[in-house]
Simulated scan of single mutants.
Amino acid sequence: MGAISREALHDALKDAWSADTSASSDWTEQNRAKGQCAVTACVVQDYLGGEILNTVATLPGGKTVSHYFNLIDGKNVDLTDEQFPSGTTFTEPKPKHGKYASTRDYCLSNDHTNQRYEVLRVRVAERMR
């Protein structure tokens, strides 16, 4: 695929995110990253490699949500962190794979996540041309 910049990939992702790629039923144009973490982490891994990690985000009101992001060359790369309000805290990130070989396989074993990933993957590929 050739080398691409993280910024170009982030721009393509932001443009490709929509309600049908989000896991959140209350996705909005104002918070395009909301519910996009698992599918985005998989697309980022497609282009930039690395590992997908999981953490639990605790929002300021106390609600907790599972969150995925990438570890690339020893650095956390979270292209959906903008979805969280200030004051959100996170547990120590780690792989989450259950009976699967990787966190990616774990994420994509869910049919709905896999469908959302395929939609996002195609949209990003079109934008990266």
Rank of each mutant, 00 (worst) to 15 (best):
Q83H: 04
K63T: 15
I72T: 01
A38P: 10
G62M: 08
T89A: 04
K99I: 05
K34H: 05
L120W: 02
M1I: 03
N31G: 04
S25F: 12
S18D: 14
E126I: 02
L71I: 03
Q45L: 06
F84L: 07
T58K: 14
D81G: 04
S102E: 06
Q36L: 12
T113M: 12
A125P: 00
P85Q: 03
S102F: 11
V124C: 01
L71D: 07
I52G: 06
R129D: 01
V65C: 08
R121C: 04
A41V: 06
Y117M: 10
C37S: 13
K63S: 15
H97F: 06
T55H: 04
A41T: 11
D81I: 15
K96L: 12
L71N: 10
Q30P: 01
A33Y: 08
G87K: 13
K94L: 03
G61C: 09
Y100W: 11
E29D: 13
S66R: 10
W27H: 15
D15G: 00
T64N: 05
A23F: 14
R32P: 15
M128Y: 00
P85M: 09
A101T: 08
I72D: 01
M1S: 12
L79E: 10
R116H: 13
D20P: 10
G74D: 05
F69R: 01
A8F: 00
D73N: 15
K34L: 14
H10T: 02
N114D: 15
V122W: 01
S109P: 10
L79I: 10
E92I: 00
Y47G: 04
D81P: 01
M128A: 03
R32L: 09
F90D: 04
W27L: 13
Y100N: 09
L108I: 09
S66H: 14
Y100S: 02
R104Q: 15
Q115M: 13
V122T: 14
D73A: 14
N31W: 03
M128D: 03
S66E: 15
S86V: 14
L71G: 14
E118S: 14
G49T: 04
E82R: 05
K34G: 03
V43F: 06
F90R: 02
A8Y: 00
D81R: 10
S24L: 14
V124P: 01
T58W: 08
H67D: 09
T40G: 05
Q30V: 08
T103F: 09
Q36Y: 12
Y117N: 10
S25Q: 14
D26E: 12
P95I: 12
L79G: 11
N31M: 07
N54M: 05
T40S: 14
T80K: 02
H10Y: 08
E29C: 02
C37L: 09
A8D: 00
E82F: 07
Y117V: 13
S25M: 10
S18E: 02
L59W: 15
